[in-house]
Design a protein around this nucleic acid. Structure first.
Lengths: 251, 251
DNA sequence: GCCTAGGTCCCGTTA
DNA sequence: TAACGGGGCCTAGGC
């Protein structure tokens, strides 16, 4: 039986769903009027209301209100679930170690208890990421400028990791910072950090921000710092297997 | 009737749940074997598998696999849901405008269709945020150092917005960058940007990173740049109503 | 485990 | 609306 659900379950029904769901590695979903307490990296309280609660077999724990994409409270994968039974109510507790965090849901009224023994071996294939942009430029360095050659992908330097490092036709070192979406002040600061880092050991170093567009503030700071911009949109292409080759030569 | 659920629903049952759920502003939850297509800021494909699908009345749309805290596919609040009926299957489509994004779920087999007319007026109260840290320092500037005085909270400068701006006992301008958790390279770059910005118009400017700890790389860069560190942990205290007072004086 | 950085980030706030 | 920065961010990839 792949799925099980009980509307307005008795306490016994609820405990059965929870035990069976947990032991069979199912995804458990509960509709309930509840209250939530969290303490860990931060601390929170949520008063009584109707929510959707999801417990996954990897320990992920989600509590959703009727709005927003984000769960109002949660626990990340690896957390351990248990439950406490009191006279008239059930408490679900999830504990994470390192950092220590506890999430406690007090179930005041359960409208629906259910689980699904999900079989799913598929993984998402995503197109249009920064990683694809990087591979695209690696293979087509001329989209940056004529004569540009890539030396390194994901190259660790003194303070950080550069997306792409290469040389222009005049032999200058060139740092590329890629953004899949509109680049902001943060992106410029990041690029500036890399350029200053490399300038300490090499002569002239150019920094180019590569993105579909720039925020107004990013443009101002970029120009003030003598950095450059190239407009490139992330390609939405099927990805072939990407080789791990990272270096062409010492520089 | 606050909740409704049907196991292994017929196509008619399923369409009823969807229509009723959407029109009554309920949270809809479906257990289904499905396939998913997304196109928008990026593009993705997800092959057949069992998932939990949640549709909220604000347009939020979540598709969860059996692992991870994050939905494998989603649509943010404000998206518009519709469905298409074919001979043997139902397709749920969610469209967002600005940017244009579409999410399409092909339901191959539905194990459970349900909705909850959730009533919930409670909001989360969170303790231990950076905002609380800021207020704490604003009220207790001596935790930074003896003689330190705050001038501005959340002060916009030329390139960015400074968390706290003040003066030390010698009259030097002091920029504080706060982090509620261990500060990294990014935080140092951010602080450096603010300090360089203010140095252009004021004489000596000190930059202090205020956080519970530092990453190794952040420490190295901080020292190299002549910036400082103060160890402060975010307070987990109940928040009173926070005044909006931001400035004490021109500087 | 720590560090570094991306994300279809989401989200709130402000000009 | 765009811009800016926080987040209990989460997640992936190195080391």
């Amino acid at each position: 039986m792949k799925v099980k659900s009980i509307e307005n379950p008795s306490q016994e029904d609820l405990l059965n769903i929870l035990s069976e769901g947990l032991s069979s590695e199912a995804i458990i979903t509960i509709f309930a009027h509840c209250r939530v307490h969290y303490d860990g990296r931060a601390k929170s309280e949520l008063g009584n209301g109707d929510r959707v609660i999801i417990i996954k077999p990897d320990g992920s724990f989600l509590i959703h209100q009727r709005e927003k994409r984000e769960p109002v409270n949660w626990q990340p994968p690896g957390s351990r679930v248990s439950f406490q039974v009191e006279e008239d109510r059930v408490r679900i507790i999830s504990v994470r170690r390192k950092p220590r965090e506890t999430l406690e849901v007090e179930l005041l009224k359960v409208y629906l208890a259910s689980y699904l023994q999900a079989e799913d071996s598929e993984e998402l294939t995503l197109m249009g990421s920064e990683a694809e942009m990087r591979d695209y430029i690696f293979e087509n360095p001329e989209v940056i400028e004529e004569g540009f050659k890539v030396l390194f992908k994901e190259k660790p330097i003194k303070h950080g990791i550069v997306d792409l490092l290469g040389r222009d036709k005049d032999g200058n070192l060139v740092v590329l910072e890629l953004k899949r979406r509109r680049a902001d002040l943060h992106a410029v600061s990041q690029l500036k950090r890399y350029v200053e880092d490399l300038k300490e050991e090499h002569g002239n170093v150019r920094g180019i921000l590569v993105a579909p567009s720039l925020t107004s503030g990013a443009k101002k700071l970029l120009e003030k710092e003598g950095l450059e911009f190239r407009r490139v949109k992330p390609p939405k292409r099927e990805k072939a297997q990407r080789g791990k080759q990272k270096t062409l030569d010492s520089f």
